[in-house]
């Protein structure tokens, strides 16, 4: 066995030529097999344009570049989904700090909010994706360990209360800190957003989020064209590409244009309160000033902008 790995580096000339020829054949076969193994990539790249590959980070784009990108994305929605959509880039306004509050005393756990989110934000149909998970909790405890999101029975159940959880739009968001490429950041109105065209899909933010608020596009979202919500924004509900992160944006395509989030409008009991913290006459301010509110996992120091409260 000795020297089997380093056998004979200077064999006779005839053997060398034969060996070199064999090596060349081996290398060619190997290269061909390698190309064949990678062949599925050629079925993937048609979905990739050069413009998309070279696209810069959201915050480095000029107004003209953004206009071109929005047109390109609208065309892509037409080609891939057959849907006529309008995508805008709606910036945050000065003097606005968004916050959300949720009345746990009257939430009945019907999951209408999760369903509205699913439709509004053009989520993948097959996975029933939504940014909201509703937990059925035992009365007398706010320990998440005693809750379940998988309940399947008429609601509300006696001795239970219901706690919808979505992105808390933290003021100290761990997801933003961990992102290696600054693909996610906090906007000046308090909303944490993702540039779907910059995210590399490492999912570090998903590991860092203490609220299970982030979602990954494990495959290309599938939506029938008649179900596509055509009112879209670059940083929120446009149909996401495969392989990138996404999250709740407080429906910024609605709320930055003076409307309310879809989950709030869908709530049959009025458990949800949304508004501008800087507006002294807003309902959200009244809730924060008059109710005993709490935030989830306050001990982690993430400073959520999503408040929970009870009536009684």
């Amino acid at each position: 066995m000795s020297d089997a790995m380093n056998q004979d580096v200077t064999p006779p000339t005839g053997a060398t030529t034969r060996r070199t020829a064999l090596k060349a054949v081996g290398a060619t076969l190997g290269a061909a097999a390698f190309a064949q193994a990678l062949a599925p990539l050629t079925e993937w790249t048609p979905n990739l344009s050069v413009a998309e590959f070279l696209q810069k980070h959201y915050r480095e784009l000029t107004r003209e570049q953004m206009a071109e990108i929005l047109t390109r994305l609208e065309n892509e929605a037409r080609e891939r989904y057959g849907a006529e959509v309008s995508i805008e880039d709606v910036p945050p306004a000065d003097g606005v700090q968004f916050a959300y509050a949720l009345n746990l005393s009257i939430c009945i756990g019907c999951r209408k909010c999760a369903e509205a989110c699913h439709r509004e934000n053009n989520h993948d149909r097959s996975t029933q994706q939504s940014y909201i998970r509703v937990l059925e909790m035992e009365k007398g405890s706010i320990d998440l360990e005693k809750g379940t999101a998988d309940y399947d029975h008429p609601v509300p159940q006696k001795d239970k209360f219901y706690m919808p959880v979505q992105c808390q739009q933290c003021d100290r968001p761990p997801c933003v800190s961990v992102c290696p490429v600054e693909a996610t950041w906090k906007e000046k109105d308090g909303i944490v957003v993702v540039d779907y065209n910059w995210c590399i899909g490492c999912r570090y933010c998903e590991a860092a989020c203490p609220y299970h608020a982030r979602r990954f596009n494990w495959s290309r979202p599938q939506i029938p064209k008649e179900e596509v919500n055509p009112v879209q924004a670059y940083l929120s509900n446009r149909i996401r590409p495969q392989g990138v992160m996404e999250k709740c944006t407080f429906c910024l395509h609605r709320t930055r244009n003076g409307r309310l989030p879809a989950c709030l409008e869908a709530c049959p009991t009025g458990a949800r309160v949304f508004g501008n913290l800087l507006d002294p006459k807003s309902e959200i301010r009244w809730v924060l000033e008059n109710k005993r509110v709490f935030v989830l996992k306050e001990e982690l120091g993430t400073r959520p902008r999503f408040y929970y409260f009870f009536d009684e």
């Binding site: 990739l48 490429v181 910059w198 995210c199 590399i200 999912r203 990954f216 590409p241 495969q242 392989g243």
Partner: peptide
Amino acid sequence: LGRPDRFWH
């Protein structure tokens, strides 16, 4: 990585 094509980021 979900998007290896964006490795250059």
